[in-house]
Design a binder for these strands. Structure first.
Lengths: 239, 239
DNA sequence: TCACTTCATATAGCGTTGCTATAGGTGCTA
DNA sequence: TAGCACCTATAGCAACGCTATATGAAGTGA
């Protein structure tokens, strides 16, 4: 009845939980099922994981490693926004491939571990968006862009999971994806115009900001702040 | 201990369930709690609702009536796409106002009743989008537009619910909302309701510089200067 | 008026759940 | 060899969703 008597009980519990979760089809999975499949008794589970949610958190953590691996498993195309598209698609595929695990990770709002998972996924996307921002392709701060895109990404994936497999329409995904990416892009990025300059992105951006600030009398900073700010900008852009 | 002995048990059960659900803060609500608060014993619950999920489905149905009422509670502005914006905002507000009920309705993927709820909400939105389509403002079939918008709407609402109330940033919602509406609009409609595409060059440049600076550890500024500088940049770029 | 049916509620308890108090076994270090 | 962590098992508790069965209340027809 046990799953591989060779492995340590902690590992067997993890695998049993993940396996039952995947096969459960959404039904609840009891600790007794898990411990029986792992060839272990109840106290062993609670010794290693504290409680049932602790075990599921561990399963989620393992699932997240797999998620990250999927999200990183492609060569950067040099066009960050194109890479964001791929991250989106990978996310959807991960959800459709392992719906139960996905629901535990992203669908289980009440779970204690969800905020951490979401924050990590957000960071992953923000990291990629940063590259776009450096290239002047982002009209929105990367952090907020990442949150918006991820929110839509999760919403779409949940909706696709709800549908039965045969009638799934992936165009829902691509359309929503492109809408979100378009929304956070600058005019320049939308025309797929690659900016090419030998100068460092910092300098380019500083020059652009310097010019833009002086042209447009922003009132976000006081005049004294602005003076110092411009001085620093100059120091950076003459780097 | 009972909640209003005058009302029939069926009603008291519904109210007790809805009340406990709202106060539960995400924790599970037991049938024993519900029946005790309703001043009724277990078989009464099962006589009227079949099982626990049947009771919750009834709560959801009542909640959905309230949802629909909220979605219809505004005078048509004559601009269907503007009305869609309001539907979106009402949806988010409904979720934030009654997060527990919302989670049972839209977050509980495994639930049997969710597909029906989602389909109804979709129909509600499609109905409004039809008006936009008639006016030549829609570049996408209303059905697919409704699905995309609703998916994003749910995703955003779930993400906002996850956050603690004080740090909720509703701009996530408006930005995602406008992105989706923009995506399904025709050129003509976009000119009628101009979106934020005219992001000022200052903001774009500030965002780019911010990202570039953080990526490239420039040593042109001292750490204290840099800190203040970044703070100002953030102020500008979140303008 | 009285049996009869129907609907609604209560008593009591079944099987399962998550979890734990306690004790026993195992391997390592002194 | 004794002691000490660490890990696992026996046995069982309280709470859970749910139900077999019985009792009451209300209406109906003769």
């Amino acid at each position: 009845m046990s799953t591989n008597g060779q492995l340590p009980p902690k590992t067997r519990l993890l695998r049993a939980a993940a396996g039952l979760l995947a096969k459960s089809g959404g039904a609840a999975v009891s600790t007794r099922q898990i411990t029986q499949l792992a060839g272990v008794t109840a106290p062993t589970l609670y010794h290693h994981f504290g409680d049932k949610e602790g075990l599921f958190d561990a399963v989620v953590a393992a699932g997240f490693d797999e998620y990250v691996a999927g999200e990183r498993d492609f060569a950067p195309s040099g066009q960050p926004l194109e890479d964001i598209r791929r991250m989106w698609d990978q996310h959807v595929q991960f959800g459709l491939k392992q719906p139960e695990l996905y629901l535990v990770m992203f669908g289980n709002i009440r779970s204690e571990s969800r905020p951490a998972v979401v924050a990590d996924a957000e960071a992953l996307m923000e990291e990629m968006l940063n590259k776009a921002a450096v290239g002047g392709q982002l009209a929105v701060p990367p952090k907020e862009a990442a949150r918006s895109i991820l929110a839509a990404n999760v919403g779409v994936t949940l909706m696709l999971i709800t549908e039965k497999a045969p009638e799934r329409n992936l165009e829902l995904s691509t359309m929503t994806r492109d809408a979100m990416i378009f929304a956070v892009s600058t005019e320049q990025a939308r025309q797929t115009a690659p900016e090419d300059s030998g100068k460092s992105p910092v300098v380019v951006a500083a020059i652009a900001l310097n010019a833009a600030l002086q042209a447009s009398h922003s009132d976000q900073l006081s005049s004294s702040e602005l003076k110092l700010f411009l001085e620093w900008l100059h120091r950076i852009s003459t780097n």
